[in-house]
Design a protein around this nucleic acid. Structure first.
Lengths: 238, 238
DNA sequence: CGAGCGATTGAAAAGACTCAACCACCGTGG
DNA sequence: CCACGGTGGTTGAGTCTTTTCAATCGCTCG
């Protein structure tokens, strides 16, 4: 049976059932350069789904059943601290793969994932994904490289968290977000942004205002646009 | 030519040229369960070296040439922040492998590694290591699993850094160090410990004193011994 | 014995957080 | 069409943690 919601979803202009062959995933990241039989297999095995803003992909502690490939939209990957406060570890954009770490560790999810905006996200079941990895050396090496890359990013992240002031971390975070959002303005709730930077919402708001007064930033209700990247880089203290 | 230093090293009681077959690496981690021809290959390819306390294995920005396998001793893996302050990302103990991330990413080292005490550390050249990985599915899967595991650990680490107080982080760090040091007292300079926790040395010293007064800890010049693990866990705020 | 480094202590200052109140916007229901 | 309630955003004030800077101590090594 098709619910009213899912019908509405299908009619939503942001929803497109796309072919893997035209998906951004092929432009970068893991599935970069995949083609031929491999691509056909992928096309056949993946299931395309629409997620409304703030919909959950998976939660901490649940059993991993496959990987998620973002076709369109943004997804936050986060973890909850002791008091339930979210720490955003990563924000995935179109073309990114989510949840593959858990495929290999044999553990339950240690993080949760949730859409930040209306998103198209494909799902590839665990067995299918692991099969592809097992029999495709290129893909396999890609995975290893990807894991290595993320590990390195996180070492940076840890160092920043430990040594930088909140102001510097915010500047640094905005630079990362610029890459993720590309031409579009950064579109995050104050709370999500605070949870990415690792600070209190109020502190974040005050700093955003300062950055705006410094002429680095344009602020709309929920949208941030970086005007002066150079200045931001110097504020990030690198 | 053999230098005086290296002769002295060889005479040092802490130096033992061990066979891989008796190395702790086989008890856990990547080389867990390796045997037969594989073990012989490893034995033939690896070079055993002695590192005095505070000796560098590799520095940030240098070219990775192979992996390091700790036979005996401890190694800190760290990164320098903007003001040159070290952030210790990881402390490797006997049986741990170091520097394998860089084998796969094709980049220069993003972190540095240095011995924390007199250590025996074997070296396996890049080609040999990659060969082993390429042709040994078990080993390969082990690597992927290891990378995944570390990724998960670092997500925790980031969350802790972002949300916990320094006191909680210290308690948490001491618990991690208990695992690493096992029966031995934790043996780190105040500065290294501070750089692991991510705080100023002075703050660290004051908190250690408090923990001692709370009856959690015994403090010697450089050695820390946890007395009350339960209390420490509650202090870590989990 | 003196230099030097790591460890320690004290006092002041800065940074960030918490709490409380208030505002602005938006969708709902009357 | 408008009042209402709720959510997310913003501001202010006070407090607490943590850092910084300066000084001292104690030990080891040459």
């Amino acid at each position: 049976m098709i619910s009213f919601d899912s019908m509405k979803s299908m009619l939503d202009e942001s929803y497109k059932h796309v072919a893997c062959s035209t998906c951004k995933s092929r432009g970068h990241g893991l599935f970069n350069g995949i083609s031929g039989a491999e691509l056909d297999t992928l096309e056949a095995q993946r299931a395309c789904n629409f997620y409304k803003k703030t919909q959950s992909l998976f939660v901490e502690g649940s059993t991993p059943r496959g990987v998620y490939c973002v076709n369109h939209g943004k997804v936050k990957v986060f973890k909850r601290g002791d008091e339930g406060k979210e720490q955003i570890i990563h924000i995935a954009k179109a073309g990114d793969l989510i949840g593959f770490r858990a495929m290999f560790s044999g553990e339950l999810y240690k993080v949760a994932a949730e859409s930040l905006e209306d998103s198209n996200i494909c799902f590839i079941a665990k067995e299918d994904f692991l099969n592809m990895i097992e029999f495709n050396p290129t893909l396999r090496n890609g995975i290893i490289k990807e894991l290595s890359q993320e590990l390195s990013d996180r070492a940076d992240f840890i160092t920043n968290m430990a040594q930088k002031s909140v102001r510097e971390r915010l500047a640094f975070s905005l630079l990362i977000l610029m890459d993720i959002y590309g031409e579009d303005p950064i579109n995050l709730s104050r709370e999500d942004l605070a949870n990415f930077v690792g600070t209190a919402t109020e502190t974040l708001i005050r700093l955003l205002k300062e950055f705006k007064e410094d002429g680095c930033l344009e602020i709309e209700v929920r949208k941030l646009r970086v005007i002066d990247k150079i200045k931001l880089i110097s504020l990030a203290g690198n």
